[in-house]
Design a protein around this nucleic acid. Sequence first.
DNA 1: AATGAATGAGCGTTCATTCAT
DNA 2: TATGAATGAACGCTCATTCAT
Lengths: 218, 218, 218, 218
Amino acid sequence: MGKLKKSKTPIADTEVPTQIKNPELVRERRRQIIDSTVKLFIEHGYHKTTTRMIAKAANFSIGSLYEYISSKEDLLYLVCKTIHEEVRDAVENALSNTDKEERFAQVIRQYFYVCDKMGDHILMMYQVTQFLPEKWQVMVLENELNITDIFINALSSLSGKDNFPTLDDKILNLVGHNISVLGQMWAFRRWHVQRNFTIEEYIKIQTDFILGLIFKQK
Amino acid sequence: MGKLKKSKTPIADTEVPTQIKNPELVRERRRQIIDSTVKLFIEHGYHKTTTRMIAKAANFSIGSLYEYISSKEDLLYLVCKTIHEEVRDAVENALSNTDKEERFAQVIRQYFYVCDKMGDHILMMYQVTQFLPEKWQVMVLENELNITDIFINALSSLSGKDNFPTLDDKILNLVGHNISVLGQMWAFRRWHVQRNFTIEEYIKIQTDFILGLIFKQK
Amino acid sequence: MGKLKKSKTPIADTEVPTQIKNPELVRERRRQIIDSTVKLFIEHGYHKTTTRMIAKAANFSIGSLYEYISSKEDLLYLVCKTIHEEVRDAVENALSNTDKEERFAQVIRQYFYVCDKMGDHILMMYQVTQFLPEKWQVMVLENELNITDIFINALSSLSGKDNFPTLDDKILNLVGHNISVLGQMWAFRRWHVQRNFTIEEYIKIQTDFILGLIFKQK
Amino acid sequence: MGKLKKSKTPIADTEVPTQIKNPELVRERRRQIIDSTVKLFIEHGYHKTTTRMIAKAANFSIGSLYEYISSKEDLLYLVCKTIHEEVRDAVENALSNTDKEERFAQVIRQYFYVCDKMGDHILMMYQVTQFLPEKWQVMVLENELNITDIFINALSSLSGKDNFPTLDDKILNLVGHNISVLGQMWAFRRWHVQRNFTIEEYIKIQTDFILGLIFKQK
DNA sequence: AATGAATGAGCGTTCATTCAT
DNA sequence: TATGAATGAACGCTCATTCAT
């Protein structure tokens, strides 16, 4: 579970205001704060985690915490965004695979791996998104969609080539969402599913499943 | 969306204590309370719905409310349970269909219909389960599992018969969960999915999808 | 200084919301709250008086306090309104005097008496009005104006009659404001003025002063 | 409204301590700080103006700000003092007028002009004095009194001469305060009074008023 | 059985001031 | 001298629950 990998996109952006002038410091400190917060949110949820608990866990005074974020809700947004970036980065890395067909399977595989590794985070994020203020909520949904879009695009680039059937856009879309959801299922229904399968088995079966859907459409 | 259908199992059971002696009265009053609460939870979520709001919406004094439930958490449990019963009842009704093979498709269909009709409820329940005390949480997960079990059992009764492949128990289980999750997806990702498909289209494609998985295993 | 006299207009009106249903109780409890608050505001000012101090002084729990008012600002408004009513009532009582000319002097006299008796309250109100939310601020200024209007109307009814000169409306208005301000001066500059004069002397001299202005305009 | 005119008395005096050795620098920097603070206090009041806002507006770091003042309350005192000096200077300038009788009218006129020009400052100062620590509060009241004393002295030098009646000291005093208060009224009740009169008209009428009081005492 | 007034622990947030660099 | 990150006491307010009537 540990600390989140450093993401490509900066955390110290302009979306969430801070009193601190040194942006490097903001980046670093926010990383600490977010890491601590993620753990607490996973353990206790959003409401039962107080700002004081967060400050303490991140070794900040309550006053200092509020120098780096401007509300608990802002922090919530940063948490969600960071997790999404983590997921997206992992999946996008899989895209470097040159063989197109293999690339698609790779993307699914990487995504499922991330869902396995970050099960707690993903679960937590779903429980917590509802408490975002509307404006952030839209952005988080968009981030979610961006990940689904990776699947859709990977599929799209295969559609009609080699042995792949030409897929309707709507179907393409649906398959993308199915992939997203089946990945989350590994995290959400862990008690049931992870009892029966290793992640490798799960990937194999569900990938077949997904490919089945695709070839059915021929 | 209206009121939830009367469920077979009594609400005034011993799980959730009450001050009131007359069980008939408890049943009736709890129905009112739960109906109002469901609406409020859907609209405002669990935390932003105060017990005062609930009492007002259900035409109770705050004091009376607490005669029929003993805490907000108890009420939360009753709400989750009631929704699960609703879903289960609908799916079980589909089992009366005598033709076995058709029965399986019917079960899926009915389940997806329920997911369509009760999208708000299902969504809400997922956002809200996390606030249950541990003991209730287990029970709600069990209820969820009961529904999945219906799919598994329906499949199981087909396995190895007629044209159906003989399915490994593990696979059977997984397919059951896939069905559950794909039904929820219609509610969870409504903005994306319901834009592209009618519920009928969605049922057709996802059913094919599921059957594909089954026959793949031959 | 003691408790404020019971005012004609009810405190339990609809302007300031309450959670309590019994309006009689609201009236009574608000009276206690306001009395205590006035004392505290006079002694410590608005900002240094905490809601917990108010609750304690009025023998309420902090929770109960907030059943009767909905914010500290609302309470501030009630305080200002109550003081203004007190002043206005006293001045209006003086209007019952039947002799017109004498009535005018009586109004001034009564007003100055109130300024004497309620010096602390008037002083406090002036220090505190600035913290009202805009909507209340306008209403408080209006209340203030209503009192000035009493002087203006009393003068107006004399204008052009008997020995009184016919006064321009603008002048009438100005004289009214002068009266208001010279009354407040007795409270505001108490350290300097009350050292030299009894309230009776002060009334005599300033009344002459005011009448001088009036007859000057002949 | 702009910047306040340079006052004769030094700002960098010993009343308010500083960390900085160079007194010239202190004077200059305090001038900037006070100018910015006055604007902010007028716009937002004392409590809603944070020291951070002040530092920013005066182009200081928060650290530097505290090199030149030692607390927000000290700054408040400097602000009040500066405004009083401004008012006093303007009024004292009017004293240079050689003709005694005319000098009195001139003093009133100048004072009313200042009240017109510095309405915002005067208003603000009255709202803000209450937050001074006791020791400063006394000094500010004294400053206020000094201005009133100018009127009293001007009157006193006329008393019993030429056509002027010989005035009791107490009356002299009262007239001085009346003048002060009627000047402030132009600022305090601007919405009502400035709608009806130009400052010239106002000066004329109120001067007559004041003179009336004086000659009445003959 | 029904009412609703009373309770108080607990929360998110602010801001004047300090002090290491 | 100048900077700005760090501090933490203190505040207004909420709301599930109780209990006297």
